[in-house]
Design a protein around this nucleic acid. Structure first.
Length: 605
DNA sequence: CCCTGTGTTGGAATC
DNA sequence: CGATTCCAACACAGG
């Protein structure tokens, strides 16, 4: 169209972790090339579709981000949209740059283990095809690889290390946001954009980790440009998921993200006083934190814009605040925390997401341990990926996952997680501690998988990092600090409002019993319309609503877990020790009575 | 070597 | 009520 600005550059912009137009260094660099043809694409990657655990709420959030971005493009240029192609990037991108005469490929850097392998493959293919590649960082405050290198090449395992490393990069200040584009060049004309007749490689759909969510035919990959041949953003229908299954009130998209951020920034008291440990995990209308984490995950909000907008408010208020002192619990500190997990993951690579082969994680003799990673796809499909060493522990795990442990604080949070795809950070602490070192003694990897499926803000590095933290296997070690499923909730929510909301069968219980309904006299249980009995499985009996009895005596379990942790710390294995890799660790945990420290402990009791 | 202080966010008892 | 202390005791950095 604008012949005057023509440079004969055909730029393919590959959206992945950056579903936004504002403050995108990669997009900024792409447009700075002054392209005569500009094509923003999303490749519908089977790896995310079938090999990552994604529940209905996160699917919808992603689709909303894509739709919103597509509309934003169209608003700037009626010929533009987000061009969604239904094929793996490794196979489809070479077709696209051949077909569209692409001269430049531009994308945002991603240090996730799978993303690195994928991007390396794509970059190599691009180089072979003579396509110039430009990669820009923009997903975190600092480049994770730079943080690692300033940390002596080692994974960042504490905030002081991150602070020190960040101090060596731009004196600890993230880069300022770049401007939002005011115009977008044209794509090719309709005829040249059309991929009709292009060879289309269907994906390897098995194993499908998300099969459990699909109730209709999976039509994601029927045609390269989508079922309507229009490069459209997929619908939940096409994924095979009923729209009614996405029940979260939290919605995706850059428009929504900027609106949310703006609302918070206007509340200068809130921004200035924010201290994570002082925000209530029980608040639900409205929540006590910003709800911006899912937007950071999908890149519908720039973390640097978030950081600087907050910083501006704090600078304005700065009176007694010491300048530039890191406070891990305030909002900038929270955002830097995210960088710590990204950098730790960037240094460790693939094993960071599990115990096996991961040198930073402590080995504990958990129940339901992961089996060693299998390369045989059929194996993974037919068997559980973990050892069922204790049917009782598996029952506890299932009851935890389904929100029927009999501890209302835990069950309310787990049900909120399933319905809304989000719970407060301290709620996550509470349920994670309960599943691992503070109750069930089940492997943190089981819990991380459930969070991966259900959280709309699931970020691989942050999720496993936090699970290691809470299970006292990395980052944190004070395992005698244990969350009580009764006392912790009560401290924040003495009336039990969160429980009444998410476990409505208990709504009428007096606050005296709301956290421990099993202690309520039978007469009161009848009066309040809910009997405390059974295991919470849906029953066919017609005796009215019930709530399960607690699945174990918490104080008793807490002591068992403490003893177990103490013993496992004494044994002192890590995820990459030979005994862990070859399975011989079991012998080190046998005959625990012979461990002198352990014997002393049990004799005391 | 020891000792001390710190580490994003525990609980219960006490003042 | 909010703040302080103890509980029993981890890892790590720094003097």
């Amino acid at each position: 169209m604008k012949a005057a600005s023509a440079t004969n550059k055909v730029v393919l912009y590959w959206h992945r972790t950056d579903l936004r137009l504002h403050d995108s260094p990669a997009l900024h660099a792409a447009l700075a090339l002054n392209p005569s043809v500009f094509i923003p694409v999303w490749t519908w990657d089977p790896h995310y579709v079938y090999r990552s655990r994604v529940g209905p709420n996160r699917w919808r959030f992603l689709l909303e981000c894509q739709s919103d971005l597509s509309k934003a493009y169209t608003k700037l240029n009626a010929k533009q949209r987000l061009w969604v192609v239904r094929e793996a990037p490794q196979t489809v991108l070479p077709k696209l740059w051949k077909r569209w005469g692409v001269t430049h490929l531009v994308f945002e850097k991603d240090t996730d283990a799978y993303a690195r392998a994928r991007d390396e493959a794509v970059v190599q293919l691009a180089e072979e095809a003579g396509v110039e590649v430009i990669v820009k960082m923009g997903r975190t405050l600092f480049d994770p690889d730079a943080l690692v290198s300033k940390n002596g090449g080692k994974p960042t395992m504490s905030m002081s290390q991150v602070e020190k490393a960040a101090g060596k990069i731009d004196r600890g200040f993230p880069q300022k946001p770049v401007e939002t584009p005011g115009s977008i060049p044209d794509p090719w004309d309709e005829k040249r954009m059309d991929l009709a007749g292009a060879e289309h490689e269907g994906p390897e759909a098995e194993p499908d980790l998300n099969a459990v969510h699909r109730t209709a035919a999976d039509q994601q990959y029927t045609q390269i440009m989508g079922p309507k041949d229009d490069f459209g953003v997929p619908t939940l229908d096409e994924i095979g998921i009923e729209a009614s299954k996405a029940t979260s009130p939290h919605r995706g998209g850059e428009t929504e993200a900027l609106k949310l951020l703006d609302g918070h920034i206007k509340n200068e008291e809130y921004i200035g006083r924010f201290e994570k440990p002082n925000t209530s995990p029980a608040a639900f209308e409205p929540q006590s934190t910003t709800l911006l984490s899912p937007h950071l995950h999908f890149g519908s909000l720039s973390v640097r814009k978030f950081w600087w907008d907050v910083q501006d408010v704090m600078n304005k208020r700065k009176k007694e605040n010491k300048p530039n002192a890191l406070i891990p619990t305030n909002l900038p500190g929270q955002l830097l925390f995210r960088d710590m997990y990204f950098a730790a993951q960037a240094a460790v690579g693939e094993p960071f997401s599990r115990t096996y082969g991961n040198h930073v994680v402590r080995f504990i003799d958990w129940h339901l341990q992961s089996k060693p990673p299998s390369t045989d796809a059929e194996d993974a499909e037919n068997e559980k990926p973990y050892e069922v060493d204790s049917p009782e522990a598996e029952e506890w795990f299932i009851r935890w996952r389904e929100g029927r442990t009999g501890f209302p604080w835990i069950d309310a949070l787990m049900r909120q997680l399933k319905q809304e795809g989000w719970i407060h950070h301290l709620g996550r602490h509470s349920v994670a501690c309960f599943l691992t070192r503070g109750g069930c003694y089940v492997s943190w990897e089981r819990g991380a998988e459930v969070f991966e499926e259900l959280l709309i803000d699931h970020e691989p590095a942050c999720n496993v990092g936090n699970w290691m933290w809470l299970s006292c296997t990395a980052f944190f070690a004070q395992f005698y600090r244990c969350y009580s499923p009764v006392a912790f909730g009560k401290k924040w929510d003495p009336q039990g409002e969160l429980i009444r909301r998410y476990c409505p069968e208990l709504a009428q219980f007096d606050k005296k019993y709301i956290y421990e309904p099993w202690k309520a006299p039978i007469a009161d249980q009848k009066k309040w319309g809910c009997r405390v009995t059974g295991d919470g499985k849906p029953s066919s009996s017609d005796d009215g609503p019930t709530y399960p009895k607690p699945m174990f005596d918490f104080d008793e379990r807490r002591q068992v877990c403490l003893d177990g942790m103490k013993n496992a710390y004494d044994v002192g294995l890590h995820g990459n020790d030979p005994q862990v890799l070859d399975g011989s660790w079991k012998s080190l945990f046998e005959g625990e009575e012979e461990n002198p420290k352990k014997r002393q402990k049990t004799e005391k009791i």
